[in-house]
């Protein structure tokens, strides 16, 4: 360790505010970009998925109309 105590580490002999401001801005902006890019990828992926599912919905998911104008379906059981 280049410092004798934790408070000396934070103070950095008076240069603390400069050093810690730089590191804070760096970490916030880089982590923010990583997080935001990952979130945008997820959102794009789900948007594509919804689009495909709307295009050709799976047969079982579509509720079948019980009655139409031309034909009434009555259960034979």
């Amino acid at each position: 360790m280049a410092f004798e105590s934790f408070s000396a580490f934070l103070a950095m002999e008076g240069h603390g505010p400069y050093v810690w401001t730089c590191y804070a801005v760096f970490v916030i902006l880089v982590a923010g970009t990583v997080f935001w890019s990952a979130k945008r990828h997820q959102a794009t992926y789900h948007m594509c998925k919804r689009g495909y599912e709307q295009e050709n919905p799976k047969g079982q998911n579509v509720p079948k109309a019980a009655a139409t104008f031309t034909r009434v379906e009555i259960s034979q059981d």
């Binding site: 280049a2 950095m12 002999e13 008076g14 240069h15 603390g16 400069y18 050093v19």
Partner: peptide, 25 residues
């Protein structure tokens, strides 16, 4: 690299501790 640079690397004889910004700059 950042932990090493911030806490373990020696102080610069001319610039003191402000030089530690170099590790991100």
């Amino acid at each position: 690299g950042l932990v090493w640079g911030l806490a373990f690397a020696p102080k610069d004889y001319l610039q003191g501790n402000s030089y530690r910004i170099i590790f991100i700059h």
